Amino acid sequence: MQFRPCIDLHEGKVKQIVGSSLRDGDNSATVNFESKQSAADFAGLYRQEHLTGGHVIKLGPGNDEAAAEALSGWPGGLQIGGGITADNAMKYLEMGASHVIVTSYVFKDGQVNFENLDKLFKVVGKERLVLDLSCKKKGDDYFIVTDRWQKFTDTRINKATLEKLAKYCDEFLVHAASVEGLMAGPDLELVSLLAHHSPVPVTYAGGIASIEDIEAVRKAGDSRVHITIGSALDIFGGSLAFKDVVSSCKAG
């Protein structure tokens, strides 16, 4: 299990926001934390700790300069997402991203757009593409959700879906939308499902707030599921020590 750090960018600043609060019209959002440090500073920290596979997420417009600074600060060490399309993906790879993360270009309006996915696949190749499979539980199943996690698709997160989508990408990034940002514990049922059925590496996000939570994910995921943590970390205003998370994951 690896710790995959994050750099979330909003209006050019490193922030932690409530994901579902982001509005397209005026780009407003409910902000949990805003750092005085730059995106490049965080990239340097992650590089110092030899943490690869972390992700830079551009939340709305006005983040290109900060994103470029982050990618140049840890060349090949960070993935990037936010507004990625077949037309701009190569630009970010050339700027130093190891992978591009795609969300709304493929998952939008309650649908999975396989035409766009195929376009992106042909441009960047499987080995440099990450699919963000944000999901929520409905009934007994998890479904991919789109549009700020407000719309359910009819696509279940199960063995068949993961195997089908894995043909297009190198990794999955999975946000447990129902627990994301609440710091009230991870969705261990989802973690277990991912561990048992994903044919490619997967990073889980959502609810991790303590070392005990990390150990619970390690156990539920058979040490196969990587983690990312946002608002709970002390570097983002939380109480969970970044250094302790790094040590805990490296120990496992």
Rank of each mutant, 00 (worst) to 15 (best):
K91T: 14
T52F: 12
L93W: 14
L78K: 03
Y105K: 06
I80F: 08
D64Y: 06
F42V: 07
L51T: 02
A67H: 02
I84M: 13
V56F: 06
A43R: 00
I80P: 00
L45K: 12
G44L: 01
G60E: 06
R47V: 12
E49I: 11
A66V: 02
I101F: 10
G62M: 06
G53H: 05
P75D: 05
G77C: 13
Y105V: 01
T52N: 12
P75S: 10
G62Y: 03
G83L: 08
L45M: 15
Q48E: 15
Q79C: 09
E69H: 04
G82F: 07
D41W: 07
A43M: 07
N88F: 09
G83E: 08
I80A: 02
G81Y: 00
Y46W: 04
E69V: 00
A67P: 01
N63K: 08
D64T: 06
L59P: 02
G83R: 04
F42I: 07
T52E: 14
A89N: 10
V102M: 04
F42T: 04
G53V: 08
G82A: 14
S72T: 11
G82K: 05
A68F: 05
D87H: 11
E94D: 15
K58W: 06
T52D: 14
G77Q: 10
G60S: 11
M95S: 11
V102R: 04
Q48S: 15
G73Y: 02
V56C: 07
A39M: 09
L59T: 02
I57D: 04
L71I: 02
A68Q: 12
G96S: 10
E65A: 14
E49T: 09
E69N: 05
G73A: 09
D64Q: 14
S104P: 12
A89D: 11
I101N: 05
H55G: 13
A70P: 01
T103M: 03
I80H: 00
A97C: 14
N63H: 08
A40G: 08
T52I: 15
K91E: 14
L59K: 08
K58T: 03
G76A: 11
G77A: 15
